[in-house]
């Protein structure tokens, strides 16, 4: 079985905090990490490889430093990887990202199963997996939380839904995105760490894959960010007085104002 796991390097958002005085993000010393959900994708891929045999490649798009996440995947047991790095890829929305990733999957020789984490913690869009499946013209099952059966022709998986879960048979080649429940990531291995140290990550740019610069990156994106702003947050501690009913309403208003609670606008 040929397995490709897509991984992304992201800032460690869990450790990003708001500066209570300036209301801006404090980012000093924020490390770049492998997107946590992609670790579950990698674990799912390693388990599939254990059951069905074959090889596992990791695919990433990002700046040259993102080679680190591919090396990290090798520490966990991936057989190899490919980094798509090119200034032309910068600023990509999910449409342009899937254009590059689909070319990357083809450059790796295609796959029986493509696995993505359910979303990246910096963007939280959850759109790349399904978009990539469409680009590749293969069926998909998103939010997979477990495997029931694995063979060369199909996977039977459990798909998490809001009201429970579905048991779904996915013919191969196909794409899945996975959630946390798919299995706790294993630790890296010593042999993997030693391999990763020496591993030279192959890198391809847009032209290497026959992509026009206008199809990828910001130029190839349909959406455009027009404004970025910090949610209003009060760093102060505040005791809300008055009658209980007033205080209750007031605290909701404060939280809405601070965009902690979302209500329509």
């Amino acid at each position: 079985m040929k397995i490709i796991v897509c991984v992304k390097q992201v800032p460690d958002t869990a450790n990003v905090k708001l500066d209570p005085e300036t209301h801006t993000l404090k980012r000093e010393g924020v490390a770049s990490i492998i997107n946590p959900f992609d670790l579950f994708a990698l674990e799912a891929g390693l388990r599939l490889r254990e059951q069905a045999g074959g090889e596992l490649q990791v695919l990433s798009m990002g700046p040259p430093q993102a080679a680190e996440v591919i090396k990290q995947a090798i520490e966990f047991g991936a057989d190899g990887g490919l980094l798509l790095a090119d200034r032309a890829f910068a600023g990509a929305d999910t449409w342009a990202t899937t254009a590059a990733l689909a070319a990357g999957v083809k450059a790796l020789g295609g796959a029986d199963v493509v696995i993505c984490g359910k979303q990246a913690v910096d963007g939280d869009t959850a759109q790349v997996g399904p978009g990539l499946a469409m680009r590749l013209g293969i069926p998909q099952v998103a939010f997979v939380k477990g495997f029931r059966e694995v063979d060369g022709q199909s996977l039977v998986v459990e798909r998490q839904m809001d009201d429970g879960f579905d048991v779904v048979k996915l013919p191969l080649p196909g794409l899945i995105t996975v959630v946390r429940e798919v299995g706790e990531p294993r630790p890296p291995s010593l042999k993997g760490k030693m391999r990763a140290k020496k591993y030279q990550v192959p890198v391809k740019g847009a032209a290497d894959m026959g992509l026009d610069a206008a199809q990828v990156g910001l130029a190839g994106s349909y959406t455009q960010v027009v404004e970025v702003f910090a949610p209003q947050a009060s760093g102060e501690r505040e005791m809300l007085g008055g009658a209980p009913a007033e205080a209750g309403a007031a605290v909701i208003d404060r939280l809405v104002q601070a965009k902690v609670i979302m209500v329509g606008s």
Binding site: R186, S189, L190
Partner: peptide, 11 residues
């Protein structure tokens, strides 16, 4: 199992 996956039983 985790220690085995990490190759630690081979030290």
């Amino acid at each position: 199992k985790a220690l085995a996956q990490a190759d630690l039983f081979g030290i």
